[in-house]
Design a protein around this nucleic acid. Sequence first.
DNA 1: GTCTTGACTAAGC
DNA 2: GGCTTAGCCAAGA
Length: 127
Amino acid sequence: MKKTAKAKQRSAPLTDAQRIIGAVKKIPRGRVSTYGNIAEVAGLPRRARLVGTVLRQTPASTRLPWFRVINSSGRISFPVDSDAYESQRAKLEAEGIELIRGRVDLKRHAWPRRDTELDELLWKMDD
DNA sequence: GTCTTGACTAAGC
DNA sequence: GGCTTAGCCAAGA
């Protein structure tokens, strides 16, 4: 079928980076997710490192809850003595996510929850 | 095209 | 839980 001038945006191929950013935006306030989870939600299994790469090159100007993304052990993936670490920790605590001995309790704050929320997400993006 | 890097992870102690 | 090692895979040089 031929495309009209209006048809441009609908099937715009999302880049991996765009999908990752979209996934990060879905993290609810007061919750956290891991790099691996974000990759999975974005439809990019086994690309946890890509999530980190994308976040690194994403301008701070884009409103994105990047601080809600932590690694699989519940830790902030920055050196503990860095400004970035402190910044992330402060933002998390501002949302009520406490770090206990440098770790977030993933059992309590992880999103999506393994039991139900992930399934819903993956089903919904099917169409 | 090859080599190195890295905001990662899972597995084995 | 911590530490090490081996896989992983896209970006940059």
